[in-house]
Design a protein around this nucleic acid. Structure first.
Lengths: 219, 219
DNA sequence: CCCGCTATTCACCGATTGGTGACAGCGGGG
DNA sequence: CCCCGCTGTCACCAATCGGTGAATAGCGGG
């Protein structure tokens, strides 16, 4: 039989390379989720599908249907997983620290967010997905990401109140928009509006400009 | 024969709905290009392919290969077509007008770009495509769009020099990044970083914040 | 008038997609 | 002990994709 030959190859006596998988639903579920996240982070949402995930997870796609109820459920699981993003990126000494003014705070937050996004391919891919499609899938994921971001900002902001006379919510949204697009454009094309975004020197320039803009509003 | 029945349906005597197409290569080429631009603008780059374009253009995909050398050439043609974008969006009384300061100019430019992008679905889709993929196709298109934008800015800016002491190129890039992401996020999800971007009132808020940021830097 | 050139369509290819039903094999509870 | 259930695999489906070679249909010049 063909099966015999295969079993022979993967028998303990042989190289043992295939590492016969044990029956463990939990582990398989974790492997699938990890495969999905890794695939999305590395390849983007373009070729993100049942087949690709199953291939990367090394299991049959049927299991994705069984354990997650299809791609939708899997995407939802990724979204739920974004909650950990906040936990992982809040320094112990969070909150107001010794930042006195709202301007100090927002400048710091902007730079932190810039770096955080630059080092988080999964978040970037999700962000790009959000602005490219408007399916229910993406909407759910978008909501999870948005919520995680809001929570992060809340935790980091502490209880410092914004100055009066400025629509801080709108200004901050515009600043965040700038950060997100800079990271996306830089990551995808290496530049934005003629500004190169490759070397760390390039990014310093962008960061400086960003600081100037924030400082210009919040002093 | 089946053909007979079909011919009967589309014969001059009938409704004439199919509108028998005349043999005209030029017209067909234009129809294909228009179909491609329309499809990209309306459906996005996700399902943008040879088959879809041919279906929309109402001709065989073979013609796309013959006349444009495949999707790549067609995309290139779209890129070349972006040159008209500049022509169409430069007011007769372009240039410095009666804007005295660099701040006046940049504020006006920012708001104009915001509106221009909000009303240009094709440009938005291309923008979203740029930050989502990094294939040769997209790179070419991106370059064309980038060039068009730079040209537009040049024409509008006139010969007004930026103030010393600020990295105007970097600051402007960040501002443009903000505008582009606001438009993308608003168009796709109706919000950005908690700021709703649906009603014209919402957009006024965003525009005000944008103005404040520009003014904060350029005075 | 007819013939040739060219615009256009048709028919097919292999690959890949999302999705489903049937089967295999191990393991624990009766 | 055997049998049922759960985990995992395989084979197959229709649809669509990009791509190509050959056949068809109509206009224009001789």
């Amino acid at each position: 039989m063909l099966n015999e030959a295969i079993n022979l190859d993967s028998s303990p006596g042989a190289g043992g390379e295939p590492e016969r998988r044990v029956r463990d639903r939990g582990a398989t579920e974790r492997a699938i989720l990890a495969a999905a996240k890794g695939l999305l982070a590395e390849e983007g949402f373009q070729n993100f599908g049942i087949n690709a995930v199953a291939r990367r997870a090394g299991c049959d796609k049927q299991l994705i249907y069984r354990y997650y109820g299809g791609l939708d459920g899997l995407v939802e699981a990724i979204g739920a997983d974004l909650g950990t993003w906040v936990r992982d990126r809040i320094p112990e000494d969070a909150g107001g620290m010794f930042l006195l003014t709202y301007g100090d705070l927002m400048e710091r937050l902007a730079l932190l967010l810039l770096d955080a996004l630059r080092n988080d391919p999964l978040m970037r891919r999700i962000l790009a997905w959000e602005v490219s499609e408007n399916t229910e899938q993406v909407r759910r994921l978008s909501e999870a990401r948005s919520k995680a971001l809001a929570l992060w900002l809340d935790r980091m902001r502490g209880s410092l109140a914004p100055p009066k006379g400025v629509d801080a919510a709108a200004v901050n949204a515009v600043v965040i928009a700038a950060i997100q697009h800079l990271v996306l454009a830089g990551s995808a094309g290496g530049q934005c509006a003629g500004l190169s975004l490759k070397t760390s020197k390039d990014w310093e320039k962008a960061a400086t400009a960003l600081k100037r803009l924030v400082r210009g509003v919040y002093g």
